[in-house]
Amino acid sequence: MTDQLQGRTIFITGSGGVLGSTYVRRMLAEGARVIASDLPGTRAEALVEAHGGNANFRFYPLDVANEDEVTEIFARILKDGWEPNVVLNNAAITGELLMGAGKGFPDFADLKVSDWEKTMRTNLTGPFMVARQMDRDIVGKWPCTLINVASMYALNGAHHRIYEGMPFKNFSAYGVTKAGIHGLTVWLAGYWAPRGATVNTIAPGAVFNNHSEEFQRRVGELIMLNRMAKPDEIADAMLFLASAAAGYMTGQLVNVDGGFSGW
């Protein structure tokens, strides 16, 4: 523990996933006050069970696709006496979550407009609404930073062959939203700079989450370090971006992908 986040109050959307829960754990360990949010359910319950006894932890149910909930979230947080100076736009829906466990992935030609639009609503419109509420409620009132979470596929094309025979595919709408979120970053970075707020994007690489050995081999061949990332390796970079040490960075895309984007 280095206490590099001492004095930081960090609000994280989508806190219950493999990366979100890692950010919560690591940020609490580094001295931050952490406001976690996620959809109600088992992931939210696991977060509260793990950290509910920590005075530096709060949890709020939140669907980032719901405009009313996003509009109200900062008012609720501020009413409870917490003033976030770091916000992580981490909530996202993947193809696996959208289609449901064990269900087949449609080919691109068969992708429903409703599934495309649901992904856009959660992954891009949701982060926009969170940023808009930051603009209304906290930007300019004290120095703050927004970190948007993209992906290794934000600015790089998917390698479709590695998904052949796998129970999942690369989902077109996911990559499109992750490219778009960096567009939000660079637009906001210039817009907020006069009011003392910074905005950056982190693009995690392929993170191990109980993937098969065959998939690990396939994706590893595309990565300079020849392996998938551990969640804590992504969190290491996230901790830096959330700290005061990143105070002179804004409008940047930080790839944490083991060299995937460097070939």
Rank of each mutant, 00 (worst) to 15 (best):
A91I: 02
A44E: 05
L184N: 02
D3E: 14
T177C: 12
E164C: 02
A150M: 02
V70P: 04
S151K: 01
F208M: 14
G17T: 10
G262N: 14
E49P: 07
T13C: 01
V48A: 06
G205F: 13
L98N: 03
L28Q: 03
E30A: 01
R218C: 05
L111P: 03
Q133G: 03
Y174S: 04
N170G: 15
G175W: 05
R76H: 11
V87C: 04
A32R: 08
D63Q: 07
P127L: 00
I147G: 03
G126A: 08
K112V: 11
I93V: 15
D3K: 13
D236L: 14
D110E: 13
L146H: 06
M1S: 15
G81M: 01
N56H: 15
A245Q: 14
Q133D: 15
R43S: 14
E213A: 13
A203Y: 06
T9W: 05
E72H: 10
A237H: 11
T177G: 00
I181W: 02
Y163P: 00
A50W: 11
R227K: 13
M152E: 15
R217W: 12
D135I: 00
N255Q: 12
L188V: 09
G196N: 02
L146I: 08
Y60D: 05
G17I: 11
T9L: 10
V64D: 09
N200R: 05
S114K: 12
R218S: 02
A29M: 10
G175C: 03
T177N: 06
I234Q: 07
R195D: 07
K230V: 10
G205I: 14
